[in-house]
Design a protein around this nucleic acid. Structure first.
Ligand code: FES
Ligand code: FES
Lengths: 148, 148
DNA sequence: TGATACCTGAGTAAATCACTCAAGAACATC
DNA sequence: GATGTTCTTGAGTGATTTACTCAGGTATCA
């Protein structure tokens, strides 16, 4: 598995923040409840997101977290790489300082390089705003189904 | 990282076998040396590949391993899935019996489903024979470079 | 029968994962 | 300025996975 809970939870949290953007700070306890994330674990993820410059936070009563940039300017790629580090499917694909000796010994390198590039391109093209929109659409569908 | 050394070593070994197909059994010690794989570890990988039906082996002096099918009929996808299990980048994408409740709670599901499908399609389209051919090409290039 | 090679399962050190806990620092309100 | 709320940080932990090794066994050939 390429993504750990870190990436998954982190994106969930960001979707939540994006959904409530402009309504003032959102508290971690609310995010945790709504998105089913252990609260004490979410702490660390929010800290990481803040250090990465995606989120700003205020302390004290009625404090919480909010997005720094508009959600349309945040790509899924940027988010996930901030949370997970490199998304490379293989160690030898990481840009880890001139260690391309592996290619000569291992013949599947090029296929994975292709796949990795495609993956990154796709992830870069998806914005947080799009994820929120998708979720809203999904909710509408659910309501319609329920009403029938 | 999606792939562990298991998948990497396993494919390396298979490339080696494909390269020497038709020349009788290849010994694990040779594979290990040529492909830089710990020999005692390779044992387990070859056993797994045999159980998965990719390789047949003969014991005793001048024994070893050889491919069961022609290398053109072995896809990289089949190989890797036999070695690594599912290649799903996220737990919730595994076909693990009607657990699609995750989609309703997590909004990035669909993007990864797309990426996963593309990845599998690409991997299915690459055969072991192609990997060998690529490696041969690479060797030729290296020789030319060396000669200049 | 003995040398050669594969086969198998147990074991293991190190790393990573998915958290929890506890102490602290900033902030708002009364 | 005391109090309670909320974020902040680091340390610690059990479970799991990774990447192996090792010891003993089995089949085959000469
Ligand atoms: S070492 Fe990179 S693909 Fe094998
Ligand atoms: S739970 Fe599957 S993408 Fe988040």
């Amino acid at each position: 598995m390429l993504l750990s809970t870190k990436g998954d939870y982190g994106v969930r949290a960001m979707i939540d923040l994006a959904k409530h953007a402009g309504e003032g700070p959102v508290q971690r306890s609310e995010i945790a409840r709504r998105r089913q994330i252990p609260e004490s674990y979410l702490d660390h993820l929010l800290a990481q997101l803040r250090r990465a410059g995606f989120v700003r936070s205020t302390r004290g009563p009625s404090g919480g977290h909010e997005l720094v940039k508009p959600s349309s300017e945040i790509s899924l790629l940027g988010l996930l790489e901030a949370l997970e580090g490199s998304l490379a499917p293989l160690g030898c694909l990481e840009p880890a300082a001139g260690d391309d000796a592996a290619e000569s010994i291992c013949g599947q390198n090029w296929v994975w390089q292709e796949i990795y590039d495609q993956m990154r391109t796709r992830l870069a093209a998806v914005s947080l705003a799009e994820l929120v929109e998708h979720e809203r659409e999904h909710e509408r569908q659910a309501v319609i189904t329920y009403n029938i």
